[in-house]
């Protein structure tokens, strides 16, 4: 009790949080700066946020980013779920180790390599680079993350539930859509959210695989920063932070509520049985 707030623990937590969040805090504070100079405080203002709306290039980039993230996350989730199913369900088959190794390799592959190899592929098959090449590239590199998330859920999934469905006359396809998918849905949704977020903030792979027609927000921000940081950049970054924070909060709140409800129901059932 008294140990929990010892000076050591308090110092550790303050230092830890400071290390993590002071840069972000500074970015957020300066997005409300009235002055055009990023390092000099000139009073409170929200004009940079208003200015964002009129900055068509930036808004275009944001819209492209969202579309890329949405489509690529969906593709990655479908492919990742399928890969996870094969890995967990098919048991031993020739080349299983190679298959699983190859699915998870992009997790540790340097992004520059992934980006470069995809660029070479698109050039080799003469695929017009632009929006769709970014989508494909993002689906490729986020798929392994989706597979990891779904696989974790599937490996503690009771296989007998699927057997029960088939025993009751459901074909394998019906079993998947009526039983397996609804049960693993929460992990499929988190896989999608993870893929979405990863695609949202990717700079390296998008830079390699895009063409002149499509620019994502991270690319836009990066190119503008090279010309000098403006409070406008701070403003759009703050919006992105808010976006992600709210998403994470909602997701964790939902998980917490669900766990609490299951726990409460179980206690009620036990009490009723006794």
């Amino acid at each position: 009790m008294n140990n929990r707030f010892s000076w050591f623990n308090v110092t550790a937590i303050v230092l830890g949080f400071a290390f993590l969040y002071i840069p972000i805090l500074i970015l957020v504070i300066y997005s409300f700066n009235d002055s055009k100079l990023v390092t000099v405080w000139g009073g409170f203002s929200t004009k940079w946020y208003a200015g964002l709306i009129e900055n068509e290039q930036l808004m275009d980039a944001a819209w492209t980013t969202l579309r890329v993230a949405f489509i690529s996350a969906t593709m990655a989730t479908v492919l990742g779920t399928m890969a996870a199913l094969v890995l967990v369900r098919m048991g031993r088959f020739p080349g299983r180790t190679l298959f699983s190794g190859m699915i998870f390799a992009p997790l540790v592959m340097p992004e520059v390599i992934t980006g470069l190899s995809l660029l070479l592929l698109f050039v080799a098959i003469n695929f017009d680079r632009g929006f769709w090449t970014i989508v494909l590239a993002h689906a490729t590199f986020t798929m392994c993350f989706a597979a990891v998330v779904v696989q974790a859920r599937l490996s503690d999934f009771d296989h007998r539930v699927e057997e029960a469905a088939m025993d009751l006359g459901a074909s394998p396809v019906a079993t998947f859509f009526q039983v397996t998918l609804p049960i693993i849905a929460p992990s499929v949704i988190s896989a999608w959210l993870l893929a979405f977020t990863l695609s949202l903030d990717d700079l390296v792979i998008a830079s390699f695989t895009t063409g002149p027609s499509a620019t994502t927000l991270p690319m836009k921000i990066y190119s503008q920063v090279r010309l000098g940081v403006t409070p406008e950049i701070n403003a759009i970054s703050t919006i992105m932070i808010a976006f992600v924070t709210v998403g994470v909060l909602i997701a964790s709140y939902m998980t917490k509520m669900q766990t609490a409800r299951v726990e409460r129901d179980r206690r009620a059932a036990d009490a009723a049985a006794n």
């Binding site: 009771d158 007998r160 539930v161 057997e163 029960a164 469905a165 088939m166 025993d167 009751l168 006359g169 459901a170 074909s171 394998p172 009526q178 039983v179 609804p182 049960i183």
Partner: peptide, 28 residues
């Protein structure tokens, strides 16, 4: 298994569908 319509099984540890109500489980 899904072609053996006159044989049904009750599983060890029941293998109920956790996302369905009792009624929907029985009617599956």
């Amino acid at each position: 298994p899904y072609e053996r319509s006159n044989i049904n099984m009750m599983f060890q540890s029941y293998a109920l569908f956790p996302h369905m109500t009792v009624e929907r489980n029985v009617g599956f």
